[in-house]
Each structure stands twice: as C-alpha cells, then as structure tokens.
Design a protein around this nucleic acid. Structure first.
Lengths: 145, 145
DNA sequence: ATTGGTTGTTACTTTAAAGGTAACATCTAA
DNA sequence: TTAGATGTTACCTTTAAAGTAACAACCAAT
C-alpha cells in the first residue's frame, strides 16, 4: 500500500488549530495547509474526537483541542488515527507442520511487541506542545534570516 | 498497501536454513514452510545475500548463513529486506506558505527519527540465535504435552 | 555431453490499505 | 430562509507488497 501519513496529518491539524486559534478553522482552511481535501481533514478530526483529543461542533468551524498540549503525546495521536497500531507485521500464514512455520508466529509476535513497546515509549515522551514549540522555533529562525 | 511481512519471512528463511541444515534447502522446500512461492523466497534470499547475511550458490540448493546467528540482529535482517526502513512517514506535501505546513515536515522528521532510533535499538538487541532458540523451545513444549 | 533440477532475475498480475473525491443529510448562525 | 459548516458514507484512484510465471544460467549425476 501507500505509506500512511495519517499521524503526520493529525499532528498537523492539531498544531494548526492551536497556532491559528483566532483564524478560520474550517476543514477547508485546514485542508489548504495540509494540501489535502476537507473530507480527509474531517475524517481525521472525527478520529481525534473519538479519542477525546478534540472537541468539535457541527455547523460551526470551532474545533478545540480538549487537553493541554503538554498532556497530549504523539502516542495518543498515533493511537487515535492509525487503524492498525502495529509497526511490524507477522506473516500469519505459515505451515504449522514445520518446526519453523509452526512456532515462528508466536516467537515473532513476542519480539515485535518489545520493539513496539520501545517505539511507543519514545512516542509517549513527545508532546504536542513540544512539537508546536519546535514549529514556532523554526518559523522564527526563518524570519530572523 | 498491504502490510509488509518481508521481515517475518526473511527471519523464517534464515531460521529454516539453520534448523533444517541437513535437509532439503531448495527455495521450493522453504516456500512450503513459509506457505508462499519459490520466487518470493529467492527474492528475499537475494536481499539477504546482498546484505552479506547469506551465501548461496547458483544451481545447488545449499544456502548458508554467513555469520554466527548470535551475531545477526533483527535490525540487520530488517535493513536487508525492507526497501523503506522508516516506520513512520512524514507527509511531504504541505503548504509552505503556512507556519504549520512550512515547518512541520522538519519537526516531524526529527521526532520520528528518535522513535526510529528507539525501535532500532530494540531490534539490534534481538539476535537470530535467540529467535531460533525461542522456536525450539516452543516446539519442545508442544511435544512434552 | 545430456538431462533434470536449481538459482537468479525480471515482468506482469492481483491484492489491500491509503488517500482523493464527491455527495448529502444535518446543524448553526445571521 | 439561507449560506455555509460539519459528519458520514460511498466510490474511485494510487501504490507498495505479494503472487505468479517464465527463462537464462548454472550444477551435478549419469
């Protein structure tokens, strides 16, 4: 398949809502920044809403991030929008008659779980606030030059 | 796209070659264990050979793992077979005119790199030898019951 | 040397998940 | 009432992976 950038777009949306708090926050306006389309933006916002990270109101373009950005991690956003959380995937069609085929699935599942845990621990340590701060810092470095 | 299980199949192949060292090691035999087809097995073996993990000889079904399994990590295999090493992907089409769109790519690239590093460190700590040992252990637990 | 079997490689098809697009019911606010 | 927004769904397109097949190159045994 294509590589997913749902996580990237979701962070984008949340950062946009925080940074352009007093401007147009319609899905159309956000889609212009993401260079995508309003439908996709609304779908991602729906996922963020389901995860309790975003509050929206039908009919009005007034989305609000529900928690303090210091209290929202990259992992929260990842889990909110990615349908399959797994970074690595076991081949679940192997020959059970074979010593390898009959056992490797569980072996790898366990190994991949530790990799997943390591990645998630790192994701948990990155906050939306720090990402927004980094965006601001890069912007300021531009205008200084 | 489909989720890749190239890494899983590559581990399967290497484990198979080690465990069935004195049996039929043709791509056809291995494909039966992977429940796939010889073409795919040979393609993965070619990638492992390019990475220096496997030695093969045209015409004869005599593949050999080149390094000691304690010296081959899951990361080595991952890098050998995955065309795109990145676990997370930045959306590289965002509006540069916008504060968010113009800076988020670099911000996320940096954040994702730390997640990648955490995952890779864990992958580096898992050896082919330990995976094979785990497969054996599971097999023995079966026959004991 | 011929034969049967194997690898190495490539081209093509199929599959599945992501993303693009559009439509429309529902809601809000002026 | 109306213009514009969201929420949701359905369908199409794209893309990387995996399946399939073919065949030249090679090996080993007879």
């Amino acid at each position: 398949m294509r590589y997913s950038h749902k996580l990237s777009d979701a962070v984008h949306i949340l950062a946009y809502i925080e940074i352009y708090h007093d401007d147009d926050l319609s899905s159309t306006a956000i889609a212009r920044s993401v260079e995508s389309n309003p439908g996709l933006v609304r779908r991602l916002m729906a996922a963020l809403r389901t995860a309790g990270l975003l509050a929206t109101q039908r009919g009005t373009a007034t989305p609000e991030v529900t928690r303090d950005p210091t209290d929202i991690s990259l992992l929260d956003i990842y889990r909110a929008v990615e349908t399959d959380d797994n970074l690595l995937h076991v081949d679940d069609k192997t020959n059970p008659q074979c010593i390898v085929g009959g056992n490797i699935q569980e072996t790898l599942r366990e190994a991949y779980a530790t990799v997943q845990a390591a990645a998630e621990a790192q994701m948990a340590s990155i906050t939306l606030a720090s990402l927004i701060a980094d965006i601001w810092q890069r912007e300021q470095q531009k205008t200084q030059a």
